[in-house]
Structures are given as structure tokens and as C-alpha cells.
Amino acid sequence: MTKVLCSIRDLSVAYPTPTGAQHALKSVSLDIIAGEKLAIIGESGSGKSTLSLALTGLLARQAMVDGVMSWPGLGSAPRAGRDIGIVFQDPGSSLNPVLTIGDQVGEGARRHLGLGRKAARDKAIELLSRVRIPQPEKAAGAYPHQFSGGQQQRIAIAAAIAAGPAVLIADEATSALDTIVQAEIAALLEDLVTNGDMTLIFVTHDIGLAASLADRIAVFRTAELVECGDARSVVNAPRADYTRQLLATHIDLHSPRLVGAADVR
């Protein structure tokens, strides 16, 4: 049985600009199914990040919002950090450089679960080991700059899931990482969601990554939802021209090389 976690109907988000309102999302309707891995894909300016901010309730104050977003799977609107965790592209700017890893990862648990200092510390260590940070006890006392980019992203994920949210949003969370670390983080997200009874919303510009990770794919272009469906059918039998274009421009090992040995003088 599929249970609808979040139902979005005719959602529009616009920002005021000197030349009039600029739409970041235009009457988007989409159901998010509890427990699924949903990929949101699109290029710059497609509205994919605006959607993740709207879901988390983190839209800028001047944003003009229209339409309905209901959460039948939760009963009420989610509280950011408690019911919905979010991980952004650059862990360097989401972690506080002057707080220890343990304090930052435990913060969500203290605030939302009411844990005391000691219990929050233990919880942080448990979370760090769940995201496979080596020597989690020692890591809890260290600072962000002492970790690599990939490890920082693991730490940001640990902080995002500290309060046991029902939804985890990863907004280009692997884009700044090299392919090896990207694959590791994708596998970690998959494991956390499958074993932690969470719903994953994976925002990316990479249709290859989306296809290898997600159950369903929603394709966005210039503020509109172009198509949404089962991941396999979206890539194998795309309905929208734009999706076909994205697949054609995706670069992987099957893409034709542009140069050959004969070019060199």
C-alpha cells in the first residue's frame, strides 16, 4: 500500500524583482510517497532548490507562495530539523567552524528530543558511527576543518537525521564531491533511508545519479514540473522532450569521445 506523505497541489512560488514577480515554481502538483526515494532533477533555475526550501519551510520571507501543501503522512506541517532534515551542497558552509562536531550533531537531539548534554553527546557519537566516521568518540571533540569534504558531508547528514526526521532532503549534497566520494555518500543515504524508515528527496542536476539511486524521478524545467514517474520508465521511455534532451546531454562512459589520437600534430 502506498501512503501519501506530502501532497502538493498547484504550488507556485514567486519572488519580487524590480521588473515584477519572478516565478521560481509555477503551479506544481506532486505527491511524495512515504518511504520512497524521490529524485528532483533539473538545471540551474529550474526551481528544484526552491521546492526543497518550500518543503522545509525555509523560503525567504519575501517569497510569494500560492497553492496547497498538505502532509497527510505527518498530520501537521513538518518542523524543520525535527520532522524534516536537510543537507546542502557545501558542508563547509553548513557546519559552524567554531563548534565541535559533537555539539553540532547533538544539537538537533537536544532541541527536538529534549536530551541533556551527556545524552546528546552519546547520541552524537552513535550518529557519527552510523554515518561511518572513524573513531566517533574522538571525532565528536574535533572541529569541521579537521575533516575532508566527504567526511564533512557525512557529519552534516548525521546532524540532519539527529532528531529522527521522517523526511531527509539532500539538495545537491554530492555535487561538490569527487565521483568516488559521491558514490559513497549516495550509498550512505540509500542505507539510512532504507534502514531508518525515512523518505528521501534527492535534488540533483545529474540524471545518471538520479536513475541509479531513486525509485521515482520528477523533472523540473524553468519553474515547472515537466514529468514525474517511475525512475526506470523516465529514463527508458521519457515522455517529455526536455527529459530526452537531458538524457542526450548526460555525459558518462557511453558518450562519444570528441577527440581521437589522429588529431595530435
Binding site: 540524471i207 541509479s212 548526460h250
Partner: peptide, 21 residues
Amino acid sequence: VFSDPRSDTGKALIAAIPTWR
């Protein structure tokens, strides 16, 4: 190199390339 990487690093980098195919 891309069809038959010899080094462990080369193998790992190439195996991690995402594809929709």
C-alpha cells in the same frame, strides 16, 4: 585507461561514474 584501468584509483574512479543506461 577508461576501458581497462590498471591502478586501483583509476578502477575506483571509473566504477563510480553514474549512468542511467
